[in-house]
Design a protein around this nucleic acid. Structure first.
Lengths: 215, 215
DNA sequence: GATATCCTTCCGACCGGACGGTACGCTGTG
DNA sequence: CACAGCGTACCGTCCGGTCGGAAGGATATC
């Protein structure tokens, strides 16, 4: 495997058998999964490469065969998450164009991805700033794309008269994103309320407001 | 000074002159302030004690005279923030008891403290998990007190019929907290909108909702 | 009030350990 | 025999924390 571990080198390479019956693609995966769990619990800096390798029942040698550096692994994880985000966004954008429906979908999608990609999300928000230079810029760019999608839908709703005009779309978007992103701190997949139910309540709160309807 | 740097040993000790014209309370402050700036930019783990001392134009020796450990400093910062939060909460609770007013005040207060205690807030959310055992429990306990205040006000509003009953107060609270807490990621004190204006829009969004009033 | 002693504040050199990364060797398939 | 996959041993560095000491006002003792 090339020393550059750029955005998925040749992703769908045919699964061939290697000496000793190794399965490199699988090895790479288990290293990522191991790191996901450790990073989520202890954070990036508090997790050593040795620990990651141990948990995957491998050695540092294997690690540095698959990744250029520890940062390279972090970037891989970030991009994995952002890629999933972007494809989901596109799906929503190609669906209904009713602003209220779209915002509801966006909330539901955000919360779902928090539940599904919990490790990724936690790491994304906690360790994003630890990426250096270009990597950080790239990740930030994609993150901005996601937020721009949020903002676009809200602004569109205002333009078309579905949302009140006295609220700045950017501020509303920040509020929306915050509500959803923050869920990684508390959302409990096995809790009493399903993720969909939480999403429904968030949507109700943001769209109709908390205030009781006039009696 | 005793080796234990527990919650402000003797806070209002008389400012006496020490050998060499030292002012220990001031030294301690500059170490904290130095750490605040560095932690906010680089994170706790990426900031060395040496850096903190350098920035305060002191040495590691001075640092370890004023703090038991690097963790002790982190705890000090966390408690400084939580203390300010708790007093502010009490102030709101002793004010108006109209649910809508209270929630609006809570939002305004949260955003204001994000603006004022930016360093503290950033560090609080990013490095909280790095505290060990008892320290973490203590900080978490106080954090829960703050969130309980939020939850109490929302639940009270539902009970008294001011807020709609089909939204789980806990979920609504999480949404509120998230909206406000997230602001540490983007809130720009010198931006076009004042903090109060942002708070007003958030309150409008949460209370009346985004949806345009029926024509 | 002069002297000796104490104690706080801070400095500077040092230590032990952990961690990211490297060099190289071994294995076995193509 | 070339080369991918992985193991092993090792290196340089950095960093949290320690330790002895210097400076000099405070305090006690006579």
């Amino acid at each position: 495997m090339a020393r550059t571990t750029s955005p998925r080198p040749e992703s769908a390479r045919r699964r061939q058998r290697w000496p000793g019956g190794y399965d490199p693609e699988n090895t790479r995966r288990s290293l990522i999964d191991s790191a996901l769990q450790l990073f989520e619990r202890q954070g990036f800096d508090r997790t050593s490469v040795q620990e990651i390798a141990d948990r995957a029942q491998l050695t540092k040698g294997a690690f540095y065969h698959h990744f250029e550096s520890k940062d390279d692994l972090l970037r891989t994880i970030q991009e994995e998450y952002l890629e999933a985000q972007l494809t989901a966004i596109k799906k929503i954008e190609s669906g209904s164009d009713d602003p209220k429906t779209r915002v509801s979908e966006l909330i539901r999608f955000s919360l779902t991805s928090v539940a599904e990609y919990r490790g990724h999300v936690t790491i994304f928000y906690q360790e994003r700033r630890y990426l250096t230079g270009d990597l950080f810029a790239e990740v930030t760019r994609k993150r901005d794309l996601v937020e721009a999608a949020f903002a676009g839908m809200v602004a569109d709703g205002v333009t078309r008269g579905a949302f009140r005009a006295d609220v700045d779309p950017r501020i509303a978007t920040f509020g929306l994103v915050g509500m959803c992103a923050w869920a990684y701190q508390w959302l409990n997949v096995s809790g009493p309320l399903s993720v969909d139910e939480v999403a429904r309540q968030f949507a109700a709160m943001v769209l109709q407001g908390l205030e009781a309807p006039a009696a």
